[in-house]
């Protein structure tokens, strides 16, 4: 059985791997609510325009209303996803995008198919079948996505960390006196751990004083367990300073 993750990993022909964060059912549901509201609004605006034709003919506006109620819900998603490269209004607001399962842009057939298959995804009501499929499928695909080979991703807005906010350029770091231990530390610490410590430092001013002390104490103890520096180097260094020192040796190599 395939493992279910919230990421799709793609390997490019250049041999580089990148991950796409899959959108969960909740964010997709919220986007759908926005879209449903937009469709409702669009239909009613169009009906109010069409009803003015009633002066000329009684029958024609009724015919157009029938057509609008049918075409708007399907046409809205198809047109928006085509012109906005896989996004509708709701998806745009929640930072979601439909893409090909190989990470490529969609072609028109995929867009049409995934939207036509809403007919079966929405069974028996409120996208229950599609929602269940989304929960079961390892790529969080509803049946329409499965048929069209598409996935819905959450577009990451990655922010580059500003190290100057937490580390001065020439500040003294006692850990650097032990380059062999620093090298081992850099080897032992994972990207997730380093990222977590960096985030903690960047948000330290938002923390309550007691929680700040506790948090950095936990992080520092974790790092100390990984690599043991000589006692005289770290004994007078507070936990937060220790974490800063660790981050400094990880993120900045001095030459």
């Amino acid at each position: 059985m395939s493992e279910r993750t919230n990421q799709l990993r793609i390997r490019t022909p250049e041999g580089v791997c990148f991950s796409l964060l899959l959108a969960g059912p909740v964010s997709r549901c919220l986007a759908w609510i926005i879209d449903a509201f937009s469709i409702f609004l669009a239909i009613h605006i169009l009906i109010s325009i069409v009803s003015r034709l009633g002066i000329l003919s009684y029958d024609l506006p009724k015919a157009i209303v029938f057509v609008l109620y049918f075409t708007c819900p399907i046409g809205y998603a198809i047109i928006m996803e085509w012109y906005w490269n896989g996004q509708t209004l709701g998806k745009r607001l929640f930072g979601l995008r439909v893409i090909d399962i190989r990470g490529l842009h969609l072609d028109i057939n995929q867009i049409v198919l995934r939207n036509l298959l809403r007919a079966v995804d929405s069974l028996p009501m409120f996208y229950l079948l599609g929602g269940i499929a989304c929960l079961i499928n390892r790529h969080a695909q509803r049946l329409g996505d499965l048929a069209a080979n598409t996935i819905v991703i959450k577009e990451a807005k990655a922010i580059q960390p500003d190290l100057n906010l937490i580390l001065e350029k020439n500040y003294y770091n006692s850990l650097r006196e032990h380059p062999h231990l620093v090298a081992r530390l850099r080897q032992q610490i994972t990207a997730e751990e380093a990222g977590l410590a960096l985030q903690a430092l960047m948000r330290r001013n938002d923390l309550a004083p007691e929680e700040r002390v506790d948090l950095f104490h936990i992080i520092a103890r974790h790092f100390k367990d990984k690599v043991a520096f000589p006692q005289e180097t770290i004994e007078s260094v507070p936990s937060e300073q220790y974490v800063r020192n660790v981050i400094d040796v990880i993120f900045r190599v001095q030459r």
């Binding site: 990148f18 991950s19 842009h105 807005k157 990655a158 990207a191 990222g195």
Partner: peptide
């Protein structure tokens, strides 16, 4: 191993350019 956010940023950029 130590930079998560830069990697995320670059993955996002490469992914979009790849598409």
């Amino acid at each position: 191993s130590a930079e998560r956010s830069i990697r995320d940023y670059l993955e996002n950029l490469v992914g979009r350019a790849y598409a």
